[in-house]
Design a protein around this nucleic acid. Structure first.
Lengths: 236, 236
DNA sequence: TCAAAAGTGTTGTCCTTACACCCATGT
DNA sequence: ACATGGGTGTAAGGACAACACTTTTGA
């Protein structure tokens, strides 16, 4: 037992919960698991776990993601700490929520699906334990906010993708039809994409060229303001 | 002692630290205090305290602000949770950082200055305990980010203010000279301000009209995108 | 040859910047 | 009267939304 230098203070559990977004080519989805322990065992839940004494919060989030999906090197960003005294009915627990963006096809490649996880369309989520619904709402807002100015959504796509595929993603995130001409010009004008020699053939007769991210420029411009969405009317 | 439902997990201290911004008419400042207890007693520190069993995180931040400044109804927003295992050398402590914007003149009105707090210009901060310097850097970035699109900076001004005063504030926040004509038009075009009958006389011979915030429109448009800064080049 | 989706061209509108200019007033 | 900062006018340039048009190719 560690020596307590602040003897009159209360100690609490600290957890991390991950809101994991994926995109299947048509719509945004969330990865949820059936909770493996009491309370609320068997109910749907975000992926989460307690922070251990040796790790910081980012490390806890990566570890949990790795344990439950098999994936590492995932886009992860701290969302918000949730600390209602009664959020976990069993015991006072602070949860630091993270949101993660993953390439859904990489996840499918993993054989490691022992954790009865399942993808749910964002618009058809099951009921969830604790305040996980609220966390998801906050994450959706933050994703919309961030993606309106920064090229985060590429994290959801495979290495090679077409501009029409990207457009479908943006249209789903913002529930808004975009003009294909203007969209394509805007995306290309960022200089972030490198055109490939080959085309994708399934989606149309003409076929659409594949593109890859220019990794260097992506790093460089990640925090610049790129204005992907015309007149964004976001919640917060 | 509460019954422990998750018997094998570690409990930690959870604190809240507040980054309190103020504006004295010329420059942005931060309110810091001399820490009142060990470890690091007597060193400069952000205002902080431990989260109690009954309160949530927002409530903890408000309570601490009230205790140490005497002020309530302050703009407060959660910034980020900091959780390095060694950030407090005495014992593992997660700290949830908040940033606060206050009208510095309201603070000066308070007689309640028993806590040896002091305003420091942002560019001349003393050395600080733990990871407080990092918290402040993160808060500065977030303030710049937020204020480029949302009218938060009004929280730093008194009820009545002039447009040139507001411009000095924006110029200090972004370390950037703005065109007075364009600035004034842009601010007025938001419809957020109500012109007063009287003028401020100290700053110039002509005098500048006072304005007040239209509270209703301010609430309404707080989350809209208003583009206060031309070509924002922000860090993140 | 036709349909369907990819991709390019074009135009008018609005926004913004830069900067010149006018205004009010204390000294 | 003149210097000083407040405030308005304006013209050039750029960005962008809307939408017409061309291209490619499978059926």
């Amino acid at each position: 037992m560690q020596l307590k230098k602040y003897p009159h203070q209360n100690r609490m559990l600290v957890a991390v919960d991950c809101i994991i977004f994926g995109f299947d080519g048509n719509q945004l989805k969330l990865l949820l698991i059936k909770r493996g322990f009491e309370p609320r065992k068997g109910k749907w839940s975000l992926m989460g776990g307690f922070v251990t004494p040796e790790e910081n919060l980012d490390q806890a989030a990566s570890r949990i993601l790795k344990q439950l999906t098999g994936l590492s090197d995932i886009y992860l960003e701290q969302l918000l700490a949730f600390g209602d005294p009664l959020r976990d009915p069993a015991e006072r627990t602070i949860s630091v929520a993270y949101f993660a963006l993953i390439d859904i096809s990489k996840y499918e490649e993993q054989i490691n699906h022992e954790y009865s996880a399942e993808w749910f369309p964002l618009k058809q989520l099951p009921s969830l334990i604790f305040d996980h619904k609220e966390m998801i709402e906050t994450a959706k807002e933050k994703l919309r906010y961030k993606a309106a100015f920064h090229p985060v959504l590429f994290e959801l796509l495979p290495e090679k993708f077409t501009i029409p595929q990207l457009q479908v993603l943006y249209e789903d995130v913002y529930s808004k039809i975009l003009d294909k001409g203007n969209f394509s010009r805007k995306i290309l004008s960022t200089g972030l994409l490198v055109k490939q020699k080959d085309k994708e053939r399934a989606g149309s007769k003409k076929g659409a060229y594949y593109y890859k991210l220019d990794k260097r420029k992506y790093q460089l411009k990640f925090n610049a303001f790129l204005n992907f969405i015309p007149n964004p009317q976001l919640q917060s």
